[in-house]
Measured scan of single mutants.
Amino acid sequence: KEWNEKELQKLHCAFASLPKHKPGFWSEVAAAVGSRSPEECQRKYMENP
């Protein structure tokens, strides 16, 4: 399903605030978004950083 504005906001906010070198980075991003898997978050971010 399409990403909504709130999900995208959470994605970018989590990406900006979490340490990128940490193992499980995308899992933490997904936990912050709440409604998406780590894979979905990574794919979406890579599509549209």
Rank of each mutant, 00 (worst) to 15 (best):
K22L: 08
P23E: 15
F25K: 04
L18M: 10
C13F: 11
S37E: 07
Y45M: 14
S27E: 15
C41Q: 00
P19S: 11
N4K: 10
K44P: 01
K20A: 07
A31D: 09
P38W: 06
K44Y: 13
K6W: 06
Q9E: 15
A16E: 13
A32M: 15
K6Y: 05
E2V: 09
S35V: 05
E40A: 05
C41T: 02
K22N: 15
E2I: 12
H21S: 14
E39T: 14
K1I: 08
A30N: 01
E7M: 01
R43F: 14
F25V: 07
K22E: 11
V29A: 03
L8V: 04
W26H: 01
N4T: 12
M46P: 02
E2W: 00
E39S: 11
K22T: 10
E5P: 12
F15C: 14
S27L: 11
E7L: 00
S27H: 11
W26N: 03
A14I: 14
E40W: 00
F15H: 15
H12K: 07
P19E: 14
C41F: 01
A31L: 13
M46Y: 09
E7C: 00
G34E: 10
Y45Q: 12
F25E: 04
V29L: 04
R36Q: 11
L18Y: 08
E47R: 07
W26E: 04
E5L: 08
A31Q: 13
R36L: 01
A32S: 10
A16G: 11
K22I: 05
A31K: 15
P49S: 10
C13E: 15
A32E: 15
K20W: 04
C41I: 01
A30W: 00
A16S: 11
G24E: 12
E47L: 05
S27D: 14
R36P: 02
P38M: 15
K44F: 08
L18N: 10
C13R: 15
K20P: 11
G34S: 08
K44I: 08
S37D: 08
E40K: 14
G34Y: 00
P38V: 10
A30T: 01
E47Y: 06
L11P: 01
A30F: 00
G34D: 07
Q42P: 00
Y45I: 15
K20H: 08
E5Q: 15
A30R: 00
N4G: 04
R43A: 13
K1N: 15
C13Q: 15
G24Q: 12
W3T: 05
V33S: 02
P49G: 05
K20S: 07
V33I: 07
K22S: 08
K6C: 08
K10S: 10
E47T: 09
V29H: 02
P23G: 07
N4M: 03
M46Q: 13
A14M: 12
K44V: 11
E2L: 05
L18D: 06
F15Q: 14
K10I: 10
S37V: 02
H12M: 07
P19M: 05
M46A: 13
K1Q: 04
F25I: 09
W26G: 04
P49C: 13
R36E: 02
V33P: 01
E5A: 07
Q9A: 13
P19D: 15
E47H: 06
S17H: 12
F15S: 14
C41K: 01
N48V: 12
M46S: 14
V33N: 02
W3Q: 02
K10R: 09
H21M: 15
